[in-house]
């Protein structure tokens, strides 16, 4: 690569970094501003907004509610998604393409459409809006990501691994539990983190299927209607830090796992 190209490339790169991070940095800065008005310059600093957030029972319970929904929906999508991936990968049977297509469809349908569809369907079935409905919608939406990630990993599992396990006395179930599943752990873990974050972040489905209790994004939305305040910046900053920590930890953990077993 010649010099001009290199300079251009690094310019584009840094422009991108600024584009991604500047809004986040501004958001974090404003959350420490000792004034109700969002904007610059910042003349004095305060932790008041944070103490307010941590003292606000509604914010805390909403946060807990979102976490519970994320964990439950992730657990369901991981089990269902892994199951489907194992059934689909490396086999040929009639209708496989159709099943695969239907499996990944929920990831492609626009959120607003699937949310409305779920709402109508839930009413038809007599399912009350609330946690059950949200968990259900999040799980369906997340299954395709689990399927794709787990299938990709599964396709790299040498066939001889399972044959070796069978050869040494394992029936198909034991071979799956002792060999296939451990091999899938990094993929399942990665997919889980992704699902957790997707669910935690979701607004549209939670909004349409929720009952009286809001999830965190829905609460933020409700608070925004009564006007912007640095309190919202503080909530967002806490959420940002938590998701970043979870994401980075998961990344490091899977990397270590891979290093240990694959050299």
């Amino acid at each position: 690569m010649n010099r001009g190209n290199r300079v251009l490339l690094s310019c584009v790169y840094w422009a991108f970094v600024l584009y991604v991070f500047v809004p986040l940095i501004l958001m974090v800065l404003v959350s420490f501003k000792d004034s109700k008005f969002i904007g610059f310059p910042i003349r004095s600093w305060t932790f008041e907004w944070y103490t307010g957030v941590f003292a606000d029972a509604q914010v805390l319970s909403t946060f807990g509610y979102s976490v519970v929904i994320a964990v439950l929906s992730t657990a369901i999508s991981v089990v269902v998604g892994t199951w489907i991936a194992v059934l689909l990968e490396g086999r040929r049977f009639w209708g496989r393409a159709v099943i695969f297509g239907l499996t990944v469809l929920p990831a492609l349908v626009p959120g607003i459409i699937s949310a409305i569809a779920f709402r109508i369907y839930a009413r038809g079935l007599g399912i009350e809006p609330g946690m059950g409905a949200i968990v259900w919608a999040h799980a369906v939406h997340n299954v395709p990501f689990v399927v794709l990630v787990v299938m990709a990993r599964l396709s790299t599992l040498p066939k001889s691994q399972i044959e070796a396990a069978r050869d040494l006395g394992a029936d198909p179930l034991i071979a799956f539990l002792r060999i296939t599943l451990p091999y899938l752990v990094p993929a399942i873990l990665g997919a889980s983190i992704f699902c957790l974050l997707l669910s935690f972040d979701d607004f549209v489905r939670s909004f349409f299927l929720g009952g009286y209790e809001p999830t965190l994004p829905v609460l933020i939305f409700a608070k925004l209607r009564s006007g912007m305040s640095p309190e919202i910046n503080a909530i967002a900053t806490v959420a940002l830090i938590l998701t970043a920590v979870v994401g980075i930890w998961a990344e490091r953990f899977t990397r270590r796992l891979k290093k240990e077993t694959e050299g």
Binding site: S160, R166, L168, G169
Partner: peptide
């Protein structure tokens, strides 16, 4: 099936 045979194998890729 393989698990019921008193036969073991060394695989080409060791597995």
């Amino acid at each position: 099936p393989p698990e019921k045979r008193h036969v073991n194998m060394v695989f080409q890729d060791y597995a």
